[in-house]
């Protein structure tokens, strides 16, 4: 029996255990201070669906052996551009959303090819290079947002030049997924479309990982030398992983924006990669291993914690920043923990 508990503990991992207990504690605290639990849970569900695809974008990168994809902003920028063009084309509703995604995907694939080419040349230092490629892409694109030839009055500043920092999606595709087939139960609002969409993408990823290409990718990440000896083209596999990750980043931010109701530009995407990385690590992934289960558990735990801790903290202490501070500490702490686990044996 002890052994089984031990085994369970080992598989579940200490960080996940801490976060899970913390979350349960938060729920109890929330109930005690009289916060409406159903409303909190619906908020958790929305955040879960919102962030799910972005977190899923980590999976192909980790599995292909690139490690934590801190360069996710590259994909995000493509998604944002897609989202803007769809407004520029004056589309609304599902059409707008679908168009945004359809424009973003080829863009992200192109960017992914370049990014993958780069990552294949910096093997062993991918994470650091990716971080700064992401940062500089965000800064470069900030110049882009100032100069891009987009004219829709919803997008550009009424006076001066360039695109607004925040673009309101009301009347465009605000919450079109969230509101698809949504219903309320026990006082909880279920964003059916959003959850379905996210689960569908997860399912597609699951199928992909069971295809011949997916299997090759997994082998590449697991042991590149083995992969070479098994006739797998390591660089190609890594390239596919990078492209997939970038595309998912693009799709992810569109899903995120439609649920959020706004498109945020300029410096906003800078640290979005970090949140996704933290979530999947909390879900039990490591720098070398990740699964769709890790994505689901991690997103739920991480977002659940963030959503519930904010009002709880506000109730207990009137300090709005406590939730934000704990987010910084937890997300970076988990990344540090994961890093010490890689080369700890050396």
């Amino acid at each position: 029996m002890m052994e089984r508990i031990n085994e369970f503990y080992k598989n579940f991992g200490l960080p996940r255990l801490i976060i899970a207990s913390f979350l349960i504690l938060l729920c109890i605290a929330a109930a005690m201070v009289g916060l409406p639990l159903p409303a909190l849970f619906s908020a958790v569900l929305v955040r879960f669906g919102m962030h799910g695809v972005l977190v899923l974008a980590m999976v192909p990168a980790i599995i292909a052996g690139i490690g934590l994809n801190f360069g996710l902003p590259l994909g995000i920028l493509c998604g944002l551009l897609g989202g803007l063009i769809s407004i520029e084309l004056d589309l609304v509703g599902f059409n707008a959303l679908a168009t945004a995604i359809l424009i973003a995907i080829p863009l992200a694939m192109l960017v992914g090819v370049a990014y993958g080419w780069l990552l294949n040349r910096v093997k062993g230092s991918e994470m650091m290079v990716a971080t700064y490629v992401g940062f500089s892409a965000v800064s470069l694109m900030s110049i882009g947002w100032l100069l891009l030839p987009l004219y829709s009055p919803e997008i550009v500043w009424p006076i001066g030049r360039g695109i607004r920092t925040t673009i309101v999606l009301t009347g465009r595709y605000d919450k079109v997924l969230n509101n698809f087939l949504d219903f309320s139960i026990f006082g909880m609002h279920i964003p059916t479309g959003l959850l379905l969409f996210m689960l569908m993408i997860c399912f597609l990823m699951w199928l992909f990982l069971r295809s011949s290409v997916g299997v090759a990718m997994k082998a590449t990440g697991d042991n590149p030398r083995f992969a070479t000896a098994s006739g797998i083209n390591v660089n190609k596999s890594r390239m596919i992983g990078t492209i997939l990750s970038t595309v998912l980043g693009a799709v992810g931010i569109i899903v995120f924006s439609q649920s959020f109701g706004f498109i945020q530009l300029y410096q906003a995407p800078m640290f979005m990669g970090f949140g996704a990385v933290a979530a999947i690590l909390i879900g039990g992934a490591s720098v070398k291993k990740a699964s769709i289960t890790n994505v689901l558990i991690g997103t739920l735990l991480f977002q659940g914690m963030l959503v519930i801790s904010l009002p709880v903290a506000n109730k207990i202490m009137t300090l709005g920043s406590l939730a934000e501070i704990s987010r910084i500490i937890i997300s970076n702490g988990i990344i540090l923990y994961a890093l010490t686990q890689v080369s700890g044996g050396e």
Binding site: L118, R121, V122, S125, M128, V129, T131, Y132, V133, F135, S136, V138, S139, L140, S142, I143, L146
Partner: peptide, 16 residues
């Protein structure tokens, strides 16, 4: 923005 891009970019470039 260009300044920020340069700061990030030069680090990324050098690391790469």
């Amino acid at each position: 923005f260009f300044r920020a891009f340069v700061a990030y970019g030069v680090i990324g470039l050098s690391l790469g």
